[in-house]
Design a protein around this nucleic acid. Structure first.
Lengths: 195, 195, 195, 195
DNA sequence: CATGAATGAGGCTTCATTCAT
DNA sequence: CATGAATGAAGCCTCATTCAT
């Protein structure tokens, strides 16, 4: 971000811009959304947008930052207790439910994390986050099933993350069947981990 | 298509355009790819591209048609034998392997089928294909596990399809670990279906 | 015209092209009509069109020629008798009616003669034709009213021709009221010439 | 219009664009005039033109609006006095002279109002204006000649309007003989109305 | 000769971004 | 600082016309 908003009014403006961007990215996609459209929807002159953001990607970046912060919160809450001690059922609930909820509440998340053709820098940041998540899942798997070889556990973690992503997409497509689909995914994971 | 190529020369050109489009859609995505870039890569004047294709979406459409034709072939081969009689392991091999191979050989397939914001008509075609695939998976699940309620089987099929899609993305991202990831996915499905 | 059609089939083709052009010029206008559209409507390959006509204007030219030929016929018929001897009423009938009829039967005539931005050469041809018509009208006025100064008669002739053109446009706009409007115009001319 | 100019600078630009468009529409016609040519003639980047106008038709529309405003002024001035009380000679002077002057000062007026193939919306606006003018003429005729049947008066009004239009075209073609031609037209109308 | 194929030039329009008041 | 205005670069697409089989 180009200039950090200090006064209350500026903060509101920046928030308005991000909200507008979120809504537009969600329904139109990143490439299809124009900076002018964002500014118009936020009811802010385009020049003001560029006072706070370097460029279009900067807006996406800030939006991602907002998402990441919430994600970090979620992680901290999730791992506040000793998850390794939990029974598998409860563990799966705790690992999956909050993230599904988060996904449903963050309309542009999917588009930005998956669809958008962002710059290298951003892509790398995303990749780092991905790896962190995978490491965490990996730890959980190892804790649950110490008998599994570390290498294999890593592949399992990768697959698990990919499946959860797929679940997100599925839930977005059929929001009314969210619960059943989530339940089914948990069953699948459970069978997988107990096999 | 605007004009059907009759002479050999023009057939080659159309193929060259489609190949160029495939390569570009694969690395840049649909929206980011310009018709000029396609024409340039195919070493064809832009006006020639428009002799054969209505517009950019027409090119994508033709590419999809090419994919769909190959897909149909695959399906027919896969279901030439009575798959319901196969043991689960073999069944999973036969259902997943050819499609993974197909996916690896069709660079733009994922982008076009998932990412692109194509027109309604195209989106509907894709949706129809999706439903057909899900129905087929549904049939297999029911054959393997007649005890599962039809409703649940449908959800399982949906999930399975989503997971395979996720697997494709994963394999694309880590092509060197394709085999292990595929194997892991099969294990997961196996555990799931036997649970 | 580039090549004069000698065989029957070629003649039919040329006629088909001209018919197509006439229809399209009439409803779309000259500029808006594309050579490809003409060829398509005539069910003739575009390259064939260019075997018979130099370019788009060449088609218009040929169409105009066809019109001019019919016009000349009309003129000859009209002036076959000694019109100067006719009573004014009959004269007006004979001067106006056939041309209104001609106009109604020649859909593209108005567009080509008035609207189209044709080349100098063509415009000059049109202008020459105009002058010939004006001279003829001039003659009639002088015959009817020898007392009018030649200079003024020329202006009257010019005006008369313009009014008839306006009448054409009017009739095209309200074809159902053609007769009344024509009658009204004749009345006006009559009053004018008798004043 | 896409954006309403507020600062002086932008108002001048918009005026420059309209002036350029007027000049080009007048000599080339609407279809033949390109937005690039307008922008170039106004010495304005093409993107700036599109800041203020939706598209080419938007430019024409704005130009027409400018004309219509002047026309309305003219009408109001013309009908400020009780025209029905005037002697026919004076009436004709007042009805025709200002409009001929207006026409001579508005180079693109004829092209836009008559020749251009504008969209339905615009065409309807033109048609409505036409009808208003005809109604007004109709009223004058009825005032002058209460003995004429209302139906016939309407036809006379239509014809009169068409003739005036024809006069405009004529005057544009022979600007040096404008006065004589106008005088002749008045004579014709006078004879017509007194017959 | 007939015609399927080819194309340079150019038209309309948008967009991310910067300038200047 | 806020913002109305400005714009280079580029994208999509068409068309009159010619080439080459």
């Amino acid at each position: 971000m180009r200039r950090i908003p200090k006064q209350k009014r500026s903060k509101q403006r920046v928030a308005a811009i991000l909200d507008a961007a979120e809504a537009l990215f969600a329904v139109e996609g990143y490439e299809q959304t124009t900076t002018n459209a964002i500014a118009a929807r936020a009811d802010v002159p385009i020049a003001s947008l560029y006072q706070y953001f370097e460029n279009k990607e900067g807006v996406a970046q800030a939006l991602i930052d907002r998402y990441v912060a919430r994600m970090v919160d979620l992680h901290e809450q999730t791992f506040a207790v000793d998850v390794t001690a939990l029974p598998l059922d409860t563990l799966l609930d705790q690992m999956i439910d909050p993230f599904v909820r988060f996904h449903l509440e963050s309309p542009a998340f999917g588009h930005l994390m998956l669809g958008a053709d962002l710059s290298n820098e951003l892509a790398e940041a995303t990749a780092r986050m991905d790896e962190a998540v995978i490491a965490q899942i990996n730890g959980l798997i190892t804790a649950q099933r110490p008998d599994i070889a570390p290498e294999r556990a890593l592949h399992m973690a990768r697959l698990a993350k990919a499946v959860v992503k797929a679940l997100f997409a599925l839930v977005e497509q059929h929001p009314d069947q969210a619960e059943v689909l989530v339940a089914e995914t948990k069953r699948m994971f459970r069978a997988y981990l107990e096999s």
